[in-house]
Design a protein around this nucleic acid. Structure first.
Length: 817
RNA sequence: GCGGAUGUGGUGAAAUUGGUAUACACGCCAGACUUAGGAUCUGGUGCCGCAAGGCGUGGAGGUUCAAGUCCUCUCAUCCGCACCA
């Protein structure tokens, strides 16, 4: 049969569409599988990363459908976001029009790949219906006390009068007008993810089976739980006077209380209240004030590059020794971790050490290794050790001194044990147009008032200008005017929209909503119970932290709001590697992209899917190679052409294995080995590349023999194995040959694995020297006798020290002399 | 700086998890068929060497009868980041 991909792909895509082949069934007594690939942002065109993502997901979905499972395999669009607005600024295209046109085009691209998505559950997060439910959830969270407002320091372009995202700041300047970016304090809404920090950390345990360990580690580090000592540092009298008696003290946090006697200075974040007070009241000389302002304006990345500090010329008293300790401002101290102030122990902390050397501050060692003296003349000694110069704690080991010192502080009521998290609350406000409006109203009398739920969704106005200056919603002449829902007075709508991570934090729940309830509810408890959790979640490693953490957080919040019963959304996670060309990531700026449409047009979707799953295991980076794509295409051509060796039938042929030739037996063995591997790959290993290699081996072995029953049986099985990977060609051939009766679970026949003889490697001192053929029932003695004959020339004049026989593998003889 | 990974033929990669290193594929070489070949089929292909043989999984050690796999040190590359006290 000639292979004509464009014809058969169109044919079967039409068939699937007409027959609604991939809609899940509403029979909740059936076993289910929920297979989900991360939904795309509708940027305009599919890229190879998408093709990889959806090919992997589709393989799972189709495999489980063959196994008789009720499969939910949905798709949608993460359609709010900055690029739509940028396109509007650049080309004048309205974000809504731009977005929905992109969706239409990309939907057709996905269709041309033959992906087995459910159509009835597709949505875009910018749909008003989705916004309606999301705004409802935000109101619920506010009422639950999970949403609050606080000041944040944002990137601000004074020229465009607009907030900039980190990626819009280029070398400290605005990407559009090149004006120097400054920090501006603004009120922002925050979700209290920190309330869930402990549970988000604890529950990583539940994911150990199904998630890659490096993702768990990254999340663990991100949440960053640590315990230590928190205590106050009191100013001396002079310093208090200098600060107009406005401050008595500030508190610091340390995870190394054992080093406390080594404190030689303390450092405040440039944003610290005390620093702000000193700046506001002109208590610093001009150059110091300027340096601090510079620190505050620097991007967090610049702040990491080089340490800098300013002495405040005030002092605090060491809580244990009473010694005077100078207070500095340091750029590496962060306001939103701990209390924004640290005690510095340069002798035992690398950062503190560098800083002390820079500004010629004291370095007082108080910890030494167990059996040696400590030398801090070149670098800090950061290991645990034994305390000295530490008063009553001298001679104690770090591990013992830490709790002992904390206990001492608690007894004296001058400090306490504290648990800290790195995880910060999630700021969800964005000063942008193309996002879901935050459904709040500002009333002069009532303050912040929630919009009434019956008035949702609060939708975006369409008559908006995109100039890149200011916030389009804020600038709109009438949109924000409204009446206060509480008192009826004139009020103003909130003009901030939500971070798009909010949408992607619950979209997987929305997919469970069947058509019947989609209009009325975001989702239904019964349907959720049946479909959740997601059995396989497939997506890029770049989402390892933020998206996955936020989605886990929303799941827990929804549980506590009583909407759902699950603690964790994603049972198994597969993080795919990047698609590279010429050794680096495909990107427009590098000009090394390969266009999926062109690929499909030239070779067909099946070739694209086959290559992408064959070229590397899914978790690894994939190096693009045009001639290897050609190779995948040739394999499919052979698959098609050699199908003429198989015979039409309705059942798998019965074969008398013992009557077959060696080549025929070998071919059957290869076919069933591939089948065995298929189960392992689709359910455990996900190394589709080795599965495809196994099928190629089976094809090669079939080609070495001429028995048409063996060919037929081979095709019966191979087409079933390959269907999840290259569905169109498999449906076509299977339809022609077997009326598609083979597209289902196939049984492994153990009889084909029985062999008459096997080859064993024979080695001397571990060095492979020969090969022997033995019967599977041969005894150890028989094998050794054969091995010694094979090794005759190597054994001459040597003394045999040891003989090792590893059944079915090899023989190793250890000799001397 | 911190955190996470990755190093195997000319190339993408296998290796049943300590047991014959390089399966499968690309590329390359030779041959067949052909008006033609960028189609198809057949054979070959880790490196050095005429050969016997030797050497080979980034590098150096170690454990073991046996190491790509385990341990120690080291080098290179990639990814993420909020200097997390």
């Amino acid at each position: 049969m000639t292979y004509n991909p464009s014809e058969i792909e169109k044919k079967w895509q039409g068939f699937w569409e007409a027959n609604r082949s991939f809609e899940p069934h509403e029979d909740y007594s059936k076993d289910k599988k929920y297979i989900l690939s991360m939904f795309p942002f509708p940027s305009g065109r599919l890229h190879m990363g998408h093709v990889r993502n959806y090919s992997i997901g589709d393989a799972f979905a189709r495999y489980h459908r063959q196994m008789g499972k009720n499969v939910l395999h949905p798709i949608g669009w993460d359609s709010f976001g900055m690029p739509a607005e940028n396109a509007a600024i650049k080309n004048g295209a309205h974000p809504k029009k731009w977005t929905y046109e992109n969706i239409d085009y990309m939907r057709s691209e996905l269709a041309s790949l033959g992906l087995s998505f459910s159509k009835e559950r597709e949505f875009a997060t910018s749909d008003e219906l989705y916004t309606k439910f999301e705004q409802g959830f935000i109101i619920d969270m506010y009422e639950k006390g999970l949403l609050y407002r606080k000041k944040a320091s944002l990137n601000w372009c004074p020229h465009d009068q607009t907030v900039l995202a980190n990626e819009q700041v280029v070398d400290g300047c605005c990407w559009r007008c090149d004006t120097e970016v400054v920090k501006k304090e603004m009120n922002q809404y925050y979700l209290k993810i920190s309330d869930y920090a402990d549970e988000l950390l604890q529950d990583l345990d539940k994911l150990k089976e199904g998630w890659p360990s490096q993702v768990l580690t990254m999340q663990e580090n991100w949440i960053g739980k640590s315990s230590g000592l928190e205590f106050d540092l009191h100013f001396d009298e002079d310093s208090k006077a200098k600060l107009n008696n406005s401050f008595e003290k500030f508190d610091v946090f340390t995870t190394r209380p054992d080093t406390i006697y080594g404190v030689s200075y303390t450092a405040l974040a440039p944003e610290h209240d005390i620093v702000t007070y000193m700046l506001d009241n002109n208590l610093l000389d001009e150059s110091s004030a300027l340096a601090i302002k510079k620190m505050k304006n620097a991007s967090s990345i610049d702040r990491q590059k080089e340490k800098s500090g300013v002495a405040l010329n005030i002092n605090v008293l060491h809580p244990l020794t009473g010694k005077s300790v100078p207070v500095w401002v340091a750029n590496f101290v962060l306001m939103d971790y701990g209390s924004g102030a640290v005690m510095a122990v340069p002798a035992h902390d690398d950062r503190d050490y560098d800083f002390a050397k820079m500004y010629d501050l004291e370095v007082n060692a108080v910890i030494k290794p167990k059996d040696a003296d400590v030398d801090v003349s070149e670098k800090a000694f950061t290991d645990a050790g034994v305390l000295f110069n530490s008063g009553q704690f001298d001679g104690q080991k770090s591990t013992k001194a830490q709790p002992a010192i904390i206990y001492h502080f608690e007894q004296e009521k001058i400090g306490k044990k504290v648990i800290n998290f790195k995880l910060k609350d999630w700021g969800i406000s964005r000063q942008r147009y193309w996002g879901a409006p935050i459904p709040f109203i500002h009333c002069e009398d009532c303050g912040i008032v929630m919009e009434e739920k019956q008035n949702l969704p609060i939708i975006l106005p369409e008559d908006v200008e995109f100039t890149g200056e200011g916030s389009p919603l804020y600038n709109h002449p009438t949109w924000k005017t409204c009446a206060c829902p509480k008192c009826g007075k004139d009020a103003e709508r909130e003009t901030d929209t939500m971070d798009t991570f909010v949408e992607s934090s619950w979209y997987f729940l929305r997919y469970t909503a069947s058509k019947a309830i989609q209009e009325d509810k975001a989702f239904d408890v019964k349907e959720l119970d049946y479909w959740m959790n997601v059995d396989h979640y497939v997506g890029g490693i770049e989402h390892a932290i933020l998206h996955l953490l936020y989605a886990r957080f929303f799941t827990k919040v929804f549980r506590d709001l009583g909407y759902i019963k699950h603690d964790e959304p994603f049972g198994h996670l597969l993080t795919q590697g990047m698609v590279l060309k010429d050794g680096s990531k495909m990107s427009k700026s590098k000009g090394n992209t390969v266009d999926p449409d062109a690929l499909i047009e030239k070779y067909g979707a099946d070739t694209a899917r086959l290559f992408i799953l064959f070229a590397a295991p899914p978790t690894q980076e994939l190096e693009w190679n045009d001639s290897a794509v050609e190779g995948s295409h040739k394999f499919l051509k052979r698959l098609s052409e050699r199908s003429s060796n198989a015979v039409k039938c309705e059942n798998i042929p019965r074969i008398d294995h013992s009557a077959l030739s060696k080549e025929e037996k070998f071919a059957r063995k290869k076919v069933y080995e591939a089948l065995q591997r298929a189960e392992d790959v689709y359910t455990n290993k996900f190394t589709f590349n080795t599965l495809i290699a196994g099928v190629m081996e089976a094809m090669n072995a079939l080609h070495e023999q001429k028995n048409s029953d063996v060919w037929t049986e081979g095709y019966w099985i191979i087409l079933s194995i390959l269907e999840p990977i290259v569905p169109h060609i498999c449906w076509e051939l299977s339809d022609t040959l077997f009326g598609r009766a083979n597209l289902g679970e196939q049984k492994v026949l153990d009889e084909v694995f029985v062999v008459d003889s096997m080859m064993l490697g024979v080695a001397i001192n571990g060095k492979n020297r020969a090969e022997i053929e033995v019967s599977p029932s041969a005894s150890k003695e028989e094998i050794l006798a054969l091995a010694k004959v094979a090794l005759e020339k190597w054994l001459e004049g040597k003394e045999i020290v040891k003989e090792i026989v590893v059944p079915k593998k090899l023989v190793n003889i250890v000799v001397k002399g």
